[in-house]
Amino acid sequence: MAPARDRRTGFSRRRQYGAFLAYVLAVAGALVGAALLVASRFNPPAFAAMRMAVASVTAPVSASAAWAIDGVVSVPDTIATYFFVHDENTRLRAELKRSEALLLRARTIAYDNRRLRALLAVRDRSADTVVTSRLVSSTASSGRRFALLNAGRAQGVEPGMPVRGPDGLIGRVVETGPAVARILLLTDAESIVPVRRTRDGLPALAVGRGDGMVDIRSVNTTNVRFATGDLFVTSGTGGLYAPGIPVARVVRTGNDSMPARTFARPDSLDFAIVQRAFLPLPPAPPAPRP
């Protein structure tokens, strides 16, 4: 049977010194406590001064300990906040991307609505509208300038009919199929349109250049002065185009022949209006009798 543990100090000096020191600290603590109790009872000002002196010594230690404890306690909150902010940032980025897509779609719809409203206003004012249809494609970068319209003979489209958009004249129909039509654009080198200047009625010709612009050339006169910004509209001469349709604006000052930029841009248009000729074509001569 194992002997019971001896709780006495015995001959171990370390245990003897430890016990002695504990007794001394206990007695000293009791004496200090008694002194403080007496001072607080019989001399409160002195007790208050001693208390503030002790507080002044221990305050920095307490502040440092409190700062360290707060730092340790805040570590989990900091980690949690980091992950929360990271997730929130990811969610906000995804939401911003969705919002940008919706905004782009809304702007596109608003732009299309404005153009369609302008086109409808033109169609409502014109009694000679044949059909309103979509421009399928256009040759905006080749030497010849044509466009394809998604309407043909089945919709009443015939060669020679003028085609316009909400901003101005586009060209004229040169070929038709059952459901499509080919349009010769104003900027084609084979296109010639009689026009007049809006500020004084000066007659001129809008001749295609084949590079996306037209030349405004004077008619039957010389030394005609063209100024930058001069506006030209169809004159009605020839009976094909109704008068007053916007055609082009001069981009440079000069004489006799100046480049101009068309108002209608077929490469950026979606829909166009096909109209009847301003003056009906004369009837075909009767066939000779045998």
Rank of each mutant, 00 (worst) to 15 (best):
P162R: 08
D188Y: 04
P162Y: 10
R199Q: 09
T187S: 12
A204F: 01
L185H: 04
N220Y: 12
G168P: 05
I170M: 14
T176N: 08
V180W: 01
T176Q: 08
A181N: 07
R209P: 08
I183D: 03
I170K: 02
N220Q: 13
G160N: 14
R197I: 06
V180G: 02
R197Y: 06
V173R: 03
V173L: 10
V174W: 08
M213G: 01
A181Q: 03
I170V: 15
L205N: 10
D200K: 09
A204H: 06
T187N: 05
P178W: 04
A189F: 04
R164C: 10
E190H: 12
G177T: 14
V207Y: 01
V207P: 01
A179I: 04
A206M: 01
V195P: 07
R209G: 10
A204N: 06
V207T: 10
V193N: 04
V163Y: 07
A189D: 03
A189M: 11
V173K: 01
V173Q: 03
G212C: 05
V173I: 15
M161Q: 15
D200F: 09
L186T: 04
R182G: 12
A204Y: 05
D188A: 04
R196E: 14
P178H: 09
V193T: 14
T176H: 00
L185Y: 06
P166F: 10
L202R: 14
L202P: 02
I183P: 02
R196S: 11
D215V: 02
R197H: 07
D188M: 11
M213W: 08
G160L: 13
G201K: 12
G177E: 13
R164P: 00
E190W: 01
M213N: 09
R164E: 15
A189R: 15
S218I: 03
A204Q: 07
D215F: 05
E190R: 14
A206K: 02
L202K: 05
R199H: 11
V174S: 13
L184S: 08
G208F: 04
R164F: 12
M213I: 07
A206T: 00
P162Q: 11
P159M: 09
L202N: 03
V173Y: 05
A181F: 04
V174L: 12
E175Q: 15
M161E: 11
E158V: 10
I170S: 04
V174E: 14
G210P: 09
V195D: 06
I216D: 07
G168R: 02
P162V: 07
P159C: 13
I170Q: 01
V207I: 13
R209I: 09
T176A: 10
L169A: 13
L202T: 13
R199S: 15
G171F: 02
T198W: 09
P203G: 05
A189E: 11
R197E: 03
R217A: 13
G212T: 06
S191R: 03
P162G: 11
G165R: 02
P159E: 14
D200H: 11
L184G: 03
T176V: 15
P159G: 13
I192S: 10
S218T: 15
S218A: 13
V195A: 06
M213P: 02
G160V: 10
P159A: 13
L205S: 09
G212I: 03
V214A: 06
G201W: 12
A206V: 01
R172C: 11
V207H: 00
S191C: 13
I192T: 12
R209V: 10
V163K: 04
G165P: 02
L202I: 00
D215H: 06
E175W: 12
I192G: 00
